[in-house]
Each structure stands twice: as structure tokens, then as C-alpha cells.
Nucleic acid binder design. Structure first.
Lengths: 229, 229
DNA sequence: GTCTATAGGCTGATAGAC
DNA sequence: GTCTATCAGCCTATAGAC
């Protein structure tokens, strides 16, 4: 969803090099929508506000995207594809599984805290509010993350680096703790600072914590088959 | 918020034992609201639907609770206080910290999967959509969970059972992975079953997985009898 | 306490001029 | 492509009859 390829102008004529400003409107709406949706969620943002922030008219949303919901899905898809690209690249690595997993945690943490600081919030909110009725486009995306992580964990178990854990459960606990952290970061920032006067933990500190927790928690080398309960 | 203490009737007169059905209306609204809000979120449920499900009239919501939002907060508070009670009881235990933590995971898992299957969804959604502007009542509750878990972890570190982890980070990763799992359970159920034809993991399996992950991941004794203090 | 009816404020979408 | 004006559809809260 790189948004381009479309330079026709006026009444049927093509003006090869020039662009009449239409592309600008499209991108302005995408940018404005990204920021606002991330901040307040789909239901929390009226279309007129997106248009205002983009400096264009309400009606342009229907014209260019076919409605509010379509604009939203375009934004989510675009953001997700970038994350997916890096995660799937990592899954193809042949380095030791524990190292790959640590790197994956670092990459997700970096993307979620710097480049796309609202992404986890958006996806989680979507899953929660969507419940039973979500567009296939939205559903397909997390599935590919699952496949990537599952692959890494399965390899780690097969090679003996990890104890025989369930890949799906491992994926859920790993991704869950990361997504939860970044999705609730702004809430924590307000609450911890204003009420408890405690400095909220940094993304880097949390990433390191999860890396260590997973490394120790999944490691195969244990003094005995100690499994309790 | 156990909802009672309020038996006045008619026009100022008190009828000691009997209850005129008003309490029934209140509780019917609470029950209907709990189910519907959990399912579709605050914004997703119109008041007429709550009233319909409760078998009473729309206007009763404003009459008994002072509006939709107040009804919602009453529900959230009531559910939370039960969970809080058990968690804080556990935090007061003097048993070995790792055992207490395992028990806490089991208790939260049980409450979140059986007795209050929608609770995690509700709280998480609230934190996400509330962002910067949440009522103090809602904010105070998770804070007490934090304090309880923090206490257990700190004791574990002090007694040498855990390696010197940060209690706040540990709390976030633990609660995060649990809340994420239960909040997204219904989504998973639909997606995994309908699209991938895989049976979604049970709450019990996940609880065990997290218990093991935490036990191994926080354990102090790694490659030697390393004990502190 | 409970109901009906209605007021009043939002929203997203679109017809049609330019 | 872009704008203005308007529409129909929702929602919540409340006044007032019973």
C-alpha cells in the first residue's frame, strides 16, 4: 500500500510528469488519519477532524478512499506491512534460535516505540472492539506474525536450544507482553507520573527485561527435568 | 460496590422487609450491562439494548445510575473489587515467593476464564480508549494490582529466590501476558477455528505455560548455586 | 418506580455546483 | 478534484403522564 500509480488529470487527458495535487490530498489524509486514529481510536475520531488536520474537505475521504472505514483499513495495512517485513525477514534467519528471538524482541520494541508509537494500541483496540466481526484484511495480518514466531520457536525446540514448549503458547506470551506494554504506555505515563510520581519504565528497559525473561524461561539446560504441577 | 442498602419505597414511606421490584430492575440492568459491555465495548452498546435485555425501560438507566457512563463504571468497579480481593489476599501470604506467584497466576487465570470471562477485555479496552482522560475510579484499581504483585516480587528478590529483577517490569510482563491472552481469547477462537482450523489453546494450558515461564525466567540459581545475601 | 414521547446533539455520506 | 449544503440515522437524556 505505497499509494501512487495514478496520474490521470482533468477530463481524460494525461499529463505525464505533473501531478495535480490530488496525490497530496490522499497522502495528507493518510498522515492525518494515522495520527488521529492512533490517538483516539476509530470511533473516537470524526471525519471532519481528519479532514481539518489534513487541510482538505470532508468529502475527500469518501472520494479517495470510499469512506471512513476504508481509510482506516488502508492506514492499518500500510503500517503493518512494514513491521511484517522485518519480522518475516528475521524468521528466515539461520542464526541460533535464542539469538533470533532476542533480536526479534528488540526489533519489535524499536518499531513499536520509535517508528510506530501507536501501532500496538491500534491493533489491540481493533481486536478488542472487532470481536467477532472483523474484515479479513485485518485478520490476516496478525496471523503472519504468528507464523513467523512459531517457526523460530519450533526450530529452537528441534535444535535443543529450548525446552519442549508449545510454539503457539510461547508466541502468545511473548507477543502479548510486548503488545500490552506498548499499547498501555501512554496510560502508564499519565498515571505513574501524575499520581504516583514514579518515572514510567523505558521501552529499552522493558525490551531487555523480556529478552532475559524469555532466554532464561525457555532455556533447555536445567538441572533435572524439573517441571512442577 | 455490592449494590444493596436502599429499600425506600413509594412516597417517603419505608417498607422494612419487602422490596418493590426496584432492586430487581437495578440488578437486571447490571447483569445485562455486564454482558453487553463486555461483548461490544462501551461505545458499541446503545442504551435501549441494555434496557431491552434487562426487560425494563431505557429511562431506568438514567434514573438508577445517572446515565450510561455511570452504569458502566459501577459494573467495572464491582467486577474489579472481587479480583482485587483475591490478589491482595495472596500478596499477604508468607509462603515462598515463587509459589505465591504461581498461585497468583492460577487465580487470575481462573477468574478471568471462568467467573469473569470478559473482564480483561473490558479493562484493556478502557485503558486504550481512555488514554489521557479516565475517571479516577478506573485508574485507582489497576494500581492496587501493581502494588500487590510488586510486593511479592520484591520479597522474592530479597529472599534470594529470584534474580534481582525490576518489580515493575516483572509485573508488567506478567500481567501483560495474562491480560492480553484473556482479552483476545474470543478473537483467537474465531480466527484460529474458522480460518486455520486449529483448536485455540485452553486457559489452563496457558496458565501452566506462564507459570513455567516465570518460574524458570525469574529463578536465581542459573549455572551454579548463586544466592544473594 | 416505571413508562412514553420527544428534544437535541452528534455522526458519515452524498448531490450537485464549480 | 474539490467544495458547500444538506440528509438521514444514530445516540443519550429528560419532561411529564401514570
Amino acid at each position: 500500500m505505497t499509494s501512487q500509480a495514478k496520474v490521470p488529470t482533468r477530463t481524460g487527458r494525461m499529463r505525464p510528469g505533473r501531478r495535480p495535487g490530488a496525490t497530496g490530498t490522499r497522502e495528507a489524509l493518510l498522515a492525518a488519519g494515522t495520527e488521529l486514529f492512533a490517538d483516539r481510536g476509530y470511533d473516537g475520531v470524526p471525519v471532519w477532524e481528519i479532514a481539518k488536520k489534513a487541510g482538505v474537505n470532508k468529502a475527500m475521504i469518501s472520494y479517495h478512499f470510499g469512506g471512513k472505514r476504508k481509510l482506516y483499513l488502508t492506514i492499518v495495512g500500510a503500517t503493518f506491512s512494514e513491521i511484517l517485513e522485518r519480522v518475516e525477514g528475521l524468521a528466515a534467519s539461520t542464526a541460533p534460535a535464542p539469538d533470533v528471538l532476542r533480536e526479534l524482541i528488540a526489533v519489535v520494541g524499536d518499531l513499536a516505540s520509535r517508528r510506530h508509537p501507536h501501532f500496538c494500541t491500534m491493533m489491540l483496540r481493533e481486536v478488542l472492539t472487532g470481536g467477532m466481526r472483523l474484515e479479513p484484511e485485518v485478520v490476516a495480518l496478525p496471523m503472519r506474525i504468528l507464523a513467523a514466531v512459531k517457526g523460530i520457536v519450533e526450530r529452537g525446540v528441534r535444535e535443543g536450544a529450548f525446552r519442549p514448549v508449545d510454539p503457539l503458547l510461547t508466541h502468545l506470551s511473548l507477543v502479548g507482553s510486548l503488545v500490552f506494554f506498548f499499547a498501555t504506555a501512554r496510560f502508564r505515563e499519565r498515571v505513574l507520573t501524575d499520581r504516583l510520581h514514579v518515572k514510567p519504565p523505558s521501552a529499552e528497559a522493558y525490551v531487555t527485561h523480556i529478552q532475559d525473561l524469555v532466554t532464561n524461561g525457555l532455556a533447555a539446560s536445567k538441572t533435572g527435568p524439573g517441571r512442577r504441577r
